[in-house]
Simulated scan of single mutants.
Amino acid sequence: MAKSSALSTQLSLEESAWELFETGAYEEVSHLAEKNPKNVFLNHLRAVGIFETESSTANNFLLDGKTVLTPLVGAYLHRAKGNTKEAALLFHEYFKASSSPVSYSILKTGIKTCEEMGAYKACADLIQRYKALFNDGYFCRLEFFSNYHLRKFEDALKTFKENSEQLKEDRDVLAALGLCFVHIGKFDEAVNILEKLPGAGEIPTYEEKVTEYSDKIKEIPKYESRRKELNKQELLDLGYAYLFSASYKKAEEVFTSLVGQEGQ
């Protein structure tokens, strides 16, 4: 068998098992572990392979002992139990180590787990590792939003530019792209993006938004007099009142403070 040919080389047992794992030959990895029950690495790799087939029976195997795969096994165990936060932390820990074996399947699972948790710093780190190995834009949407939520607006704009063909029709991405421009003070670009969103016919024009916020604009002095007492919605109203009255610098300050609150 082609997948078994790796066993006839001069590779170590662990290296041979890893090659089989990388090709998705999880059953053959299991057979190796069964033949070598005292090999902790093979037991760990076998468990990961079974988790990758969406089975929870890996809990039944002997997983004692420590190997380079220990954080990875822990991540899968926590993921299976619904402990997404702990799983994301362990995936991040595993992939931060340059010596950790990396395959497409486990890196993809790690990134998706961090995304489920909203762990954007971990997402960004793992995506960079992914791009270095596989050189594609599979996670470009998540990379864009990770940079956005981390307030790395220039990086988010760069990600969009590099992957515009994949992202240019995504309404959520374009809406966030407009906010990126708001946060860096490029309000004309922000309005331009808003007006060109898919379904833009349903979106008010800038002039209509000025009319819509006319009452809020008149209330700006009152908002300013109690600035420290404003709740999130009132701050949003103040920010947009500034924006649609062309007080761009003040609008930027309000939106930046809101983003800071979200990050706390």
Rank of each mutant, 00 (worst) to 15 (best):
M1C: 11
M1P: 12
A2D: 14
K3W: 08
K3F: 08
S5A: 15
L7N: 05
S8G: 04
L11W: 12
E15T: 00
S16K: 12
W18Q: 08
W18H: 01
L20Y: 00
L20K: 12
T23Y: 02
A25P: 01
L32A: 01
A33N: 12
N39M: 10
L42C: 10
L45W: 12
A47Y: 00
I50R: 06
F51G: 14
T53Y: 04
T53G: 13
E54M: 05
S55E: 15
T57W: 06
N60C: 10
K66R: 14
V68F: 02
P71Y: 00
V73E: 08
L77R: 15
L77A: 10
N83R: 07
N83Q: 14
T84A: 08
T84N: 11
K85G: 07
E86F: 05
E86A: 13
E86K: 06
L90T: 05
K96G: 05
Y104W: 07
G110I: 00
C114Y: 13
E116M: 06
G118N: 02
A119P: 00
K121T: 04
A122Q: 10
L126Q: 00
I127Y: 00
A132G: 06
L133G: 10
R141W: 05
R141S: 04
L142W: 09
E143A: 09
S146V: 03
A156Q: 07
T159F: 00
F160Y: 15
E162S: 08
E165A: 09
K168F: 02
D170L: 04
A175Y: 11
A175V: 10
A176R: 03
L177W: 09
F181C: 05
A190D: 03
N192V: 05
L194Q: 05
E195N: 02
G201I: 05
Y206N: 09
K209E: 15
V210D: 08
E212G: 03
D215P: 02
K216P: 03
K218D: 15
E219F: 12
L235W: 10
L236Q: 13
D237R: 07
L238Q: 13
G239F: 11
S245R: 04
A246N: 14
K250V: 02
A251K: 08
T256L: 07
L258T: 01
L258W: 06
V259A: 15
V259L: 03
